[in-house]
Design a protein around this nucleic acid. Structure first.
Length: 924
RNA sequence: GGGCGGGUAGCUCAGUUGGGAGAGCACCGGCCUUACAAGCCGGGGGUCACAGGUUCAAGCCCUGUUCCGCCUACCA
């Protein structure tokens, strides 16, 4: 049987060690297993169980929110992924963090709603279906609007569920029964309600302005949907415009010479003496031979270029403003596809790019191109298709945003909504305070059609909640609906309440709005978060969320952005197949420090996969040793061993750490506290310490106590880990024995709580001494290259009676973990001849090594230790010799330093003695 | 142009009111040890970007310099 084939793991496994399994058989382990409840396989295989438990949770209704349920509630709305999308690491991180919160708050007994759904992503989705049509040799206009929209819905039926299923593979515990889509009937109704209301209040208006036009998508875009990119191959051309009166010329500079065909003025600064006598005169626009005026406007910067600017009101936002101020003629020279139109004279029909070449060469021929220089400047690109954006004059719909923004600013300033990490508040304010009106109309077909109608008879425009049959003005039934649709983000802005049934006043809305937290990436802070704030305050009169948690980007292991072109994309689904969802989840959580990007690599995920396996094996060990155990037997009055008191104390502390970390969105702190405790305390120490108690058969009470503590600790660990690693924890939990009163799923267990009784500082202190001694002996073993199989003796002496007593009480543990045949602990113990020496817990430890090692090696080891200690001692001494330190530092710090000083002094003395003794041994 | 974040071990990064520099991975040595070689035990490794300052005490606070990211902006 080949394990690699079963698990699909592509890594090499160590060569099989057949005798090991034989060994277990001879020891009767397989025989023992028959008496046990259930056992786990040796290696954790996520593929075997993940789908099973996900289905179980869904079938049991574990994700369902109940607005009628009592108690505190906790609610979130998912940032709806594009319906066209498929899961990438950004989604994985975003949804993981939400899922951790949802599962955590459920365990805290809260009534949780996590509202899922998808976004119709107007332009992106339209592009996808257009590409499909193109493959069939068709354009959308060939089949018409209605059939095109049908095609989009059909496509959505077929593949719109993809991303939802991928979210499920990750483990997302959304209430899927409530799944919404921004184009759903209910949400569409909300959109229309908001549009009409804002229109009626004068907050939506229609008008001719310069907007960002994508000639390829064939639509207007909002300012946010334009991505600026530095072009360093740009040029700045000087153009010479002759004066109409023949008295010379004026030079203007431009990066876009093709727009000169639409120039209707040349502007200079009114204060600029160089041009004062030209103001009011006219120039002849070359190539077009049109007379245009020279005007004065403050907009012109005298320092830049020649100090004169060509004005093209139809193709530049600033020029448009100038044009309005000076009532200039507006001439469009391009059409909606980015081709030059009839106003461009002989250039009509050329593309923008070709026209530019032609204009340059024609001007050059006329001698009107005095200079050209290389020039770096920013060029806007369409965020969906990267085509260069054209500032374009057209009739569009806008939201007057200032009044909405003011409230959204106030809500954050007043603390109604907290932005976490707080550093993002500044960005939020900065954007909100400088916000400009929002262009919401799009000239595409897929989206919410604007509820406005034009009467062909009398020209009246009607904006209405219900489709009108006839014109209220002239009763004509000759009505045409506006063909534009709304910006997708208009409907996304309503998401926190539209998904809950608004504008109806539903129970869900009453219970769960405002939501507790929104978890999202900073890339959509303006696009989405800011707009939800504005819309929520406007429509609900209340903020949409109390907290906004902004997480970082997922990058590759070197901090580079993942991109297809770079080839460094890590596909979460491939990772889930390979390592399991829990490993991916834990990795992301462990790296999700606030305000810092997540650097991800397969190696890291495989590292955390090892952690999953470690947990798995700890559970496996526990199960192997629970023979005869029942979770319902009370153990409160038993005598606990030091190890048991200590692990309970540490578990209790870990509960506290994890709880406060999750309450404060410090996901990485929660993950590392659990990692540290589970692996390096529970597995490395407690399991080893518990073994003798579990394996012996003489003292039944001791054995069952050890079982109970082991069981309890593990069971609490998997509850704590459940929000981060739900699958493996459920599998373990379901395999462990449970009391009859236990719920059906670990999802429904309560999150462990910090208890006063478990606090046991004494045990912690004593355990620290034991661990220190064990480590010291192991250190000698390690540095001397003595194999673990080599049994040793040890002698411990010292004047600290408390420490001696503590170690004597725990001598079995020490002997066991340090692998000793005998251990002598006494105040007046003798140093054995030819022994290695160590210091721990203020005591001296000797390990007789006669005949075992080369003592020169021991001398080196001690010399190293001495050097280290001397350095440390010098540091502390310096401090204590500093009078200012003694005068000004708080007493507890001074006391601490003094204690340290004494301890180190003692240690140095012992070390020196040991080195001398060793020298004598070696000499003799 | 404006703003924000960052520079800590070979790599990726933690470091919560200033008080003994940490983790994971990588590396070196030892190891089949009655859960786990996806493991166990031990170990080495840092002028906390640079320069000043405040302080008894600075990775942390202040000033400046430098390098790297990101966001934002209508300079033709």
């Amino acid at each position: 049987m080949n394990e690699n084939q079963i698990t699909g793991h592509p890594f090499k496994k160590g060569a099989p060690l057949p005798f090991k399994d034989k060994l277990k058989e001879t020891l009767g382990m397989t025989e023992n297993l028959k008496n046990q409840p259930r056992q786990l396989d040796k290696n954790y295989d996520p593929l075997q169980i993940e789908d099973k438990w996900y289905k179980f949770w869904e079938d049991e209704g574990c994700f369902a929110a109940d607005p009628k349920a009592e108690g505190d509630h906790f609610s979130m709305v998912i940032p709806p992924p594009n319906v066209t999308g498929s899961l990438h690491m950004g989604h994985a991180l975003n949804n993981l963090l939400q899922d951790i919160l949802a599962r955590y708050h459920r365990q805290q007994g809260r009534n949780v709603l996590w509202m899922p759904g998808t976004d119709h992503a107007g332009i992106a989705t339209q592009n996808v279906v257009e590409r499909q049509l193109a493959a069939e040799g068709l354009e959308r206009h060939d089949i018409g609007r209605e059939r095109f929209i049908e095609r989009v819905w059909q496509w959505r039926e077929e593949s719109g569920g993809t991303i939802i299923n991928q979210l499920k593979r990750l483990g997302s515990s959304c209430d899927w029964s409530r799944e919404r889509f921004t184009m759903d009937e209910g949400l569409s109704k909300a959109v229309r309600e908001v549009f009409v209301t804002l229109y009626e209040e004068g907050l939506i208006y229609q008008g001719d302005y310069i907007i960002n036009w994508c000639p390829r998508c064939h639509t207007a875009l909002s300012d946010l949907e334009v991505e600026f990119e530095e072009h360093n191959n740009g040029k700045l051309w000087d153009l010479e415009y002759p004066l109409a009166d023949g008295g010379g010329s004026i030079i203007v500079s431009t990066t876009r010479p093709e727009t000169m065909l639409g120039d209707t003025a040349v502007a200079v600064n009114g204060e600029d003496e160089r041009y004062s006598d030209l103001i009011g005169k006219e120039v002849i626009l070359p190539l077009m031979n049109r007379r245009i005026p020279i005007i004065a406007d403050d907009y012109v910067d005298r320092e830049f270029g020649s100090g004169a600017v060509k004005i093209t009101p139809a193709h530049d936002a600033n020029d448009f403003e100038v044009g309005v101020r000076h009532k200039l003629e507006i001439i469009k020279v391009m059409d909606e596809k980015g081709l030059m139109n009839e106003n461009a004279g002989v250039y009509a029909g050329l593309t923008r790019e070709v026209c530019r070449e032609q204009v340059i060469s024609d001007l050059n021929e006329l001698g009107l191109l005095p200079a050209t220089q290389d020039y770096q400047h920013n060029v806007g690109h369409c965020y969906r298709c990267q085509t260069i954006i054209e500032p374009y004059l057209s009739n569009q719909w806008f939201v007057k945003i200032k009044p909405l923004a003011d409230r959204a600013i106030a809500a954050v300033k007043d603390g109604e909504t907290r932005i976490i990490p707080k550093s993002w508040e500044k960005t939020y304010f900065n954007w909100m305070e400088n916000i400009r009106d929002w262009c919401i109309s799009r000239q595409i077909w897929w989206g919410h059609r604007i509820p406005a109608w034009y009467c062909d008879a009398c020209g009246k425009m009607i904006v209405a909640r219900e489709d009108p049959d006839c014109c209220p003005e002239c009763s004509s039934s000759n009505l045409r609906q506006e063909t534009d649709v709304l910006d997708t983000w208009f409907s996304s802005g309503l998401w926190p309440f539209s998904t809950m049934g608004w504008p109806e006043s539903t129970e869900t809305l009453k219970k769960y709005y405002p939501t507790s937290v929104l978890v999202t990436g900073f890339d959509i802070l303006f696009f989405w978060v800011a707009r939800m704030m504005m819309m929520g305050l406007k429509c609900m009169d209340e903020v949409p969320f109390k907290d906004v948690y902004i997480h970082a980007l997922v990058r590759d292991e070197h901090g580079h952005k993942m991109s297809k072109s770079r080839g460094n994309v890590i596909d979460p689904l491939v990772i889930i197949d390979q390592f399991g969802a829990d490993a991916l989840r834990f990795t992301l959580a462990a790296f999700a420090a606030q305000g810092r990007d997540v650097s991800l690599s397969e190696a890291r995920i495989s590292g955390y996969r090892n952690f999953v396996n470690k947990l798995w094996n700890a559970a496996r060990f526990t199960l192997m040793n629970l023979e005869g155990f029942s979770p319902d037997v009370a153990i409160e009055n038993r005598n606990f061993s030091l190890a048991e008191r200590w692990i309970s104390h540490r578990l209790n502390q870990t509960v506290g750490e994890v709880t406060s970390a999750l309450d404060e969105y410090r996901f990485n702190d929660a993950a590392s506290a659990l990692y540290q405790f589970t692996w390096h305390e529970f597995c490395d120490w407690h399991l080893e310490l518990a073994k003798p108690d579990l394996f012996q058969r003489e003292d039944e009470v001791r054995r069952t106590t050890a079982q109970a503590v082991l069981y309890r600790t593990l069971e609490q660990i998997i509850r704590l880990l459940h929000p981060i690693m739900p699958f493996v924890c459920e599998e373990i939990w379901q395999t462990l024995p449970r009391s009859a009163a236990a719920p059906k799923s670990i999802m429904q267990t309560t999150f462990p709580k910090v208890t006063l009784e478990s606090d046991d500082a004494l045990a912690a202190q004593e355990m620290a001494q034991v661990m220190e001694v064990i480590t010291a002996i192991r250190n000698i073993r390690g540095e001397m290259n003595l194999s673990p199989g080599q049994r040793l003796e040890a002698v411990i002496k010292g004047s600290d009676e408390n420490a001696i007593n503590a170690l004597q009480r725990n001598s079995d543990c020490i002997a066991n973990l340090a692998r000793l045949t005998s251990l002598t602990i006494a105040k007046d113990a003798q140093r054995p001849p030819q022994s290695a020496a160590g210091l721990a817990a203020g005591l001296e430890i000797f390990v007789p090594l006669a005949g075992l090692v080369d003592f020169a090696q021991e001398a080196t080891r001690l010399a190293k230790e001495l050097k280290k200690t001397e350095k440390e001692f010098a540091g502390v001494s310096n401090k204590l010799n500093n009078e200012k330190f003694l005068a000004k530092a708080p007493p507890e710090i001074i006391e601490k330093e003094q204690g340290k000083h004494q301890e180190l002094e003692h240690k140095l003395e012992k070390l020196r003695v040991n080195i001398r003794t060793l020298e004598q041994v070696t000499e003799s």
